[in-house]
Amino acid sequence: MCKDPRNDQELVSEFLRGNEDTLQELIVRHERKIFTSIYLLVKDRDLANDIFQETFIKVIKTLRSGNYNEEGKFLSWVLRISHNLVIDHFRSLKRMPMVYDTDEYSVFDTIPLEDTNIEDKMIAEQIQTTVRALIEQLPYDQREVVIMRHFANMSFKEIADATGVSINTSLGRMRYALINLRKLIQEKQLVLSM
């Protein structure tokens, strides 16, 4: 499938002019980062799908109401919406998941792989599943920074502002996240090479 050459802002403008197809392109373009970031916070696939849908319903309503003014930062904006919905969800349960709580995980859909070799494909899928499981084991504040930096492409300054902490705290959380991931890999004696 050919990649649509239009940038996010152009697609948004087209959508607002009534071209519904551009919404599909925006979703296809960003759904993996958005869905994964939700999933890694709530750690439940059905719930993540519910919040993913809720996020885009809110996106559609906000776009159509004319209140979107995040030129060039569509993905970051959508991720902020999804993140707020995740927080709302935990508030409704009256708890925030500050520590990881389970070592079980399911097998999820994985990204389409270009490898034609079946063995390579299986190894890559196994690595994806394993890495996700490792990220899920990180404490909430570290997972949050990982998601914002890797999937929302936010700078550490932006993350610090968004989470209400200093930039040094954001950097420290990321460093601990990376160290903890390495530690988990070593503890489980995993061989992860792509």
């Binding site: 519904e20 919404l23 979703i27 980062k33 869905f35 890694l40 849908q53 990220i135 990376l178 890999i185």
Partner: peptide, 25 residues
């Protein structure tokens, strides 16, 4: 060591369900 961990994170992406995407559309 940190660089190796960072590289792995980008390989953890997963898809939303097709039914979710269809509902939005």
């Amino acid at each position: 060591s940190m660089a190796a961990a960072r590289d792995l994170i980008d390989h953890s992406l997963m898809h939303a369900s097709k039914s979710s995407i269809n509902s939005i559309l």
